[in-house]
Design a protein around this nucleic acid. Structure first.
Lengths: 345, 345
DNA sequence: TTGTAGGCGTTATCAT
DNA sequence: ATGATAACGCCTACAA
């Protein structure tokens, strides 16, 4: 493309026979500029198709008005919803969102953070990759004095802010709901309990059982991957037990879907014989022939909150440590809606 | 936060008693710098934790290495997949992706483009909002000499590049597939035919019918929204006809899902009595109890191609007009896999 | 109210 | 091979 021809405040100043400083001031609503001059400058700027050079502005001010968001994969609904929340909260404040994908690899995070810190962004919002064991790249952010907020996944450390979901509560609420439906033999399809979110959901599940005086049985806890087939296999193995469950709380919607499909194969009635609750509230859950009850992590809200935390931090000259935990939300659908309360007189 | 303290090439030059120019050259692999000096500068830079200021660099060079992507909503799988493709293609080239959501409102596009053109990005990739009637904001991009590439949705105009899906072909292939399954009474749940993609899919459908000598019947074409309920309603209305269809090609996966659900209610066997094909290849289609055949727009590939087009454009000093049309891909699943070809002897 | 001048950090041109 | 200097476009003390 042929080179761009940019109009500068200098061009305007020459045309109007005033100084560039005056033009700058007029454009920035400096109170001590005369109304007349200001209007004139404004008009001329529009006429000449002047566009403020945000680079120069940023270089001068040290602020870019760009913020970075690092997620494992952008095309996962959970993360894209978070980003949507962030974008919607920050755009009105004049910020632009720069997206990076880590592909769950620390090495990518390291490289991206390195370039981002080269005066590319004012702040960084991130969900750290599962494989991160070394945290030097995180330290480099703090060392650079760039505000940092974690969402969904964080590191155990003071000095950083985070917005997380209360996964313990999620497990608790889901299980409690199943108990309220009259279920007493509740199985749990859990994820890898070395990962915090899965451990916490499991612990919440266990706590709810205890609270309601139900015996916890390791036989009822099966580790699955977040795949449909994995959920099916889990049901097959559960149905080999002496006493089969009357409810399943799955730590993922795909596993829940698999469980439902396998139960249909076995002609088990849902929710009459077995109630199902999934996790994540993936879009498809509500569109199923058998809509799936699911515990949601409200990702869009999480994004909004994370953005608010970062806005607060930007305003302050001192460091603010905020640890926010959002409550999960249960969307009750056919897969577990056993009883409809009749309020008629 | 306390102010950032940035090391500049000037700091390095002072420490080494050489000029800033030399430092800059050493850092930029200038061939006429002595190996010794270069190594020394490099080491010192690392020691002092020097970070190149990309703003200053951008101001000087006129290039930011940022590219903008404008989509209606980032949390729609189709768009987030495109963005993933774009990001993965451009990151290795040192570009960063700035995301904007238009929420399908031209006004948002207008405002975002205005700020983006303020030296924020080198190029713009976008999918124009459905409601756009006036195109001044697009003109402003061209006027600014900022390279522009449309993906998925474009405007009719020379002077712009675009990467689109061949929706006509999508409609044709889907319909052809149904005919190959032995279907002869093929209904089409279409979208608003004022929108190009839906019009083209419809036309492709019609062309396939003609090609195979099947009469087109307007009774078999029903306009639906992209909602499950809408697909259900469409089936109900189709089943009021004298002759009911033996296949349905839906221009959206949710409508296809609705159709399937309603047919199950009617105890119609799928795919034996009726074959179904959806569009978009949403993630859920393959996880259904009845996995849905769907025609895919290969969004991630589309993103990759769009990124390649823009990279080419960046390299050239003259304008390149590229109009690329990608072929759709049919994923055949249970909802239409009527016959398994038996090749045994 | 407006003008002058210097600096943000880098790079490119012209000397040396 | 290296140094001095100006320039990218804007903002802001300080002066007038």
């Amino acid at each position: 493309m042929s080179e761009k021809q940019r109009i500068t405040i200098y061009d305007i100043s020459k045309k109007l026979n005033i100084s560039a400083a005056t033009v700058s001031r007029a454009l920035n609503d400096d109170p001590k500029i005369s109304k007349k001059t200001q209007d004139l400058v404004r008009e001329t700027a529009v006429k000449m198709n002047y566009k403020r050079n945000r680079l120069a502005q940023a270089l001068k001010s040290g602020r870019t008005n760009n913020i970075a968001v690092i997620v494992p994969y952008i095309d996962r609904n959970f993360f894209s919803s978070i980003i949507r929340g962030i974008e919607e909260e920050l755009t009105p404040h004049g910020y632009h969102v720069i997206i990076c994908q880590s592909h769950e690899k620390v090495q990518n995070e390291v490289e991206q953070i390195a370039t981002l810190l080269n005066t590319q962004v004012d702040v960084i919002l991130m969900s750290i990759s599962k494989t991160a064991r070394n945290f030097d790249h995180i330290r480099s952010i703090l060392k650079d004095k760039t505000p940092l907020v974690f969402f969904d996944r964080t590191i155990k450390s003071p000095q950083v802010s985070s917005v997380l979901i209360d996964d313990f509560k999620a497990g608790y609420i889901a299980t409690e709901h199943l108990i309220n439906q009259g279920c007493k033999k509740i199985a749990h399809l859990c994820g890898d309990r070395n990962v915090n979110i899965y451990k916490n959901r499991h612990d919440g599940y266990r706590a709810a059982l205890k609270k309601f005086g139900i015996q916890y049985s390791p036989d009822y806890v099966i580790e699955v991957s977040s795949k449909v087939k994995s959920g099916m296999a889990a049901v097959r193995s559960l149905w080999h037990l002496e006493v089969t469950p009357d409810a399943i709380f799955a730590a993922g919607d795909y596993a829940a879907l698999g469980a439902i499909q396998e139960l249909k194969n076995k002609n088990v009635e849902i929710p009459e014989e077995v109630c199902i609750v999934g996790s994540s509230n993936e879009p498809f859950t509500k569109y199923m022939e058998m809509p799936i009850t699911s515990i949601s992590q409200t990702p869009r809200l999480m994004g909004k909150i994370a953005a608010q935390v970062i806005l607060e931090q930007i305003k302050e000259s001192y460091f603010i440590e905020k640890k926010i935990t959002l409550p999960p939300e249960l969307f009750i659908r056919d897969s577990s809606a056993r009883s409809i309360v009749d309020l008629s007189v």
